[in-house]
């Protein structure tokens, strides 16, 4: 089983409170906010590694390939994926890809998937991705990638199991759990509760040294510039604003020595006022 995992380097979601908009340039200032692997993508990678190892234990050949469209400076995030256990990695990196919305991004990724298949001389069986990225959080890319490739997509997958050749994916919707079964190519977008991603070990980091990591620019992909990047994006960004979330934040109790009991009384009083 050949598995491709989509990975996106994003600004550390723990630090979104530190982001601000420069009043002059109106651009996002992300100074001091580190880049990390999108958390849910780590769950996708974990799910892929478990599937792969299951196949290998059953005596089959299986591999996990990581694919990312990202600026070259985040190359080390792909090395992290290799250290976690992926077998190889491909990075699609070109200024021409920049400014893309989900439509143009998923197009470039789909072309990347096709080129990987061509390069390896064998098609993939399964593509896994995090259901959404922490930064944009549209949840579009896995679905749109599947559409470009003309294959099944199932998102919000909270459980994924293999039984022989059959894959069983459970999609969590608002009021039901939908179980899908089948074989053949598909894109599954997983949620964070599907598993707990493994730690990266020192052995993994050392092994990652020898694993192939290819960086492809548009020279390798050869895509029409009008179909990629900002130009290939059917949506166009406008202004950025930071919503005003501030409130008075007045002390619940004026008395500095108030106890938890006093606090509970004050809360009950406020609840009472609203009719609870």
């Amino acid at each position: 089983m050949r598995i491709i995992v989509l990975v996106k380097p994003v600004p550390d979601p723990e630090k979104y409170n530190e982001l601000r908009i420069d009043p002059e340039t109106k651009r996002l200032v992300r100074e001091g906010v580190q880049t990390v692997i999108n958390p849910t993508d780590k769950n996708a990678l974990e799910a892929a590694l478990v599937l792969r190892d299951g196949r290998i234990a059953a005596g089959e050949d299986s591999s996990v390939t990581v694919l990312s469209m990202a600026p070259e400076f985040s190359r080390d995030k792909l090395v992290e994926c290799l250290a976690m256990g992926a077998d190889d990695a491909y990075m699609l990196s070109d200024v021409a890809f920049g400014g893309a919305d989900t439509y143009a991004t998923s197009y470039v990724l789909a072309e990347g998937v096709k080129k990987i298949a061509a390069e390896k001389g064998e098609n993939f069986d399964l593509i896994l991705a995090g259901n959404e990225s922490a930064d944009g959080a549209t949840a579009h890319v896995p679905v749109q990638l599947a559409e470009w490739l003309g294959i099944t997509h199932i998102s919000r997958v909270c459980s994924l199991e293999a039984e022989g050749e059959t894959l069983r994916a459970v999609k969590r919707s608002e009021d039901v759990l939908l179980t899908f079964e089948g074989e053949g190519q598909a894109v599954f977008a997983v949620t964070r509760d599907i598993n707990k991603p493994r730690f990266i070990s020192a052995m993994g980091i050392v092994k990652a040294r020898k694993k192939p990591l290819s960086i492809w620019t548009n020279e390798e992909l050869g895509l029409d510039e009008s179909a990629i990047g900002l130009e290939g994006s059917p949506t166009q960004p406008g202004r950025l604003i930071t919503p005003e979330l501030g409130r008075a934040g007045r002390p619940l109790l004026a008395d500095e020595d108030a106890t938890a009991e006093d606090a509970a009384k004050a809360i009950r009083a406020l609840l009472g006022k609203e009719g609870f």
Binding site: D101, T102, Y103, S106, G136, A137, T138, A139, H140, V141, V143, Q144, A146, E147, W148, H153, I154, S155, R156, K171, R172, S173, E174, S233, P234, T235
Partner: peptide
Amino acid sequence: ATALGEEVAPALGVRLGTGVAAH
């Protein structure tokens, strides 16, 4: 933007060649 809507909307975007604004 439900579990169903989130699966349908972006797919329509690619099928129709148009943009989708999320959430």
